[in-house]
Amino acid sequence: MKNLTFRFLLVLLVVQTLAHSQSKGMVFIEGSRYIPLYGRDSTVVEVKNFEMDIYPVTNLEYLNFLKENPKWQKSNILKLFSDKSYLANWNSNLELKPTENLNSPATYISWYAAKAYCECQGKRLPTVDEWEYAAMADETTRDARVKPSFNKKILAWYEAPHSNEDTIGLHPKNVWGVYDLHGLVWEWTLDFNSVLITGESRKDVDKDSNLFCGSASLNATDLMNYAAFMRYAIRGSLKAKYAMKNLGFRCVKPVKN
């Protein structure tokens, strides 16, 4: 009998680990319901369990992808899928410029290319909701948005130049075990253009009465609004074929519950 219980427990344990077995280079992020700051409708959204890349995709990883998928190389990519800046920091199809670091985040990459990269790995780009959910954690809490110091740090990064030249993993990981969501580069999201920002931010405020009320009633959260505003502004300014110096990406994978 004792033996049986033990076996049963063992099986349970195996099942448990299997269910949460993590893909290489990714961490598990437990989904939840939360209110994004400035989402499609600024109401509660539900994020399901998913896994997220620990680091943004690096130049080295992207180089390997290019070797296997020549059609995404600099000289082969379709004009429809990129602009002139695509891989502007590469000398040729498979050679980075000497000033660049293989361990830096891959940038100058269009949304199409980022999406294709993730799909090749059996993953996909994170949605805005998923990205914002993972990125609201600091080193100790899952939702650090109310901490002024957290938001100040993020705002300070938005002002610091040339951070895309840094290598990955220099900042402390957050409570999920994810590095560099803040402090290195902007990151592509699957539905980056679903937030309708007209470029006239004051008008956006008027248009979205939820947001307006939200920001007016939550006085203490001015700072966190500002940090998020800037992310939504950069997303709003993008088109899928843009490739930019300060814009990289990472992938996620949904987890079956």
Binding site: G199, E200, R202, K203, K239, M244, N246
Partner: peptide
């Protein structure tokens, strides 16, 4: 690092041009 635009008070038009000039790096 950031997108920008320009609102000119000399412009007669929505946003003083802000809407039409929103530009990514």
């Amino acid at each position: 690092k950031l997108p920008h635009n320009i609102d000119m008070h000399a412009v007669t038009g929505p946003g003083g041009g802000a809407e039409s000039s929103f530009v990514a790096p």
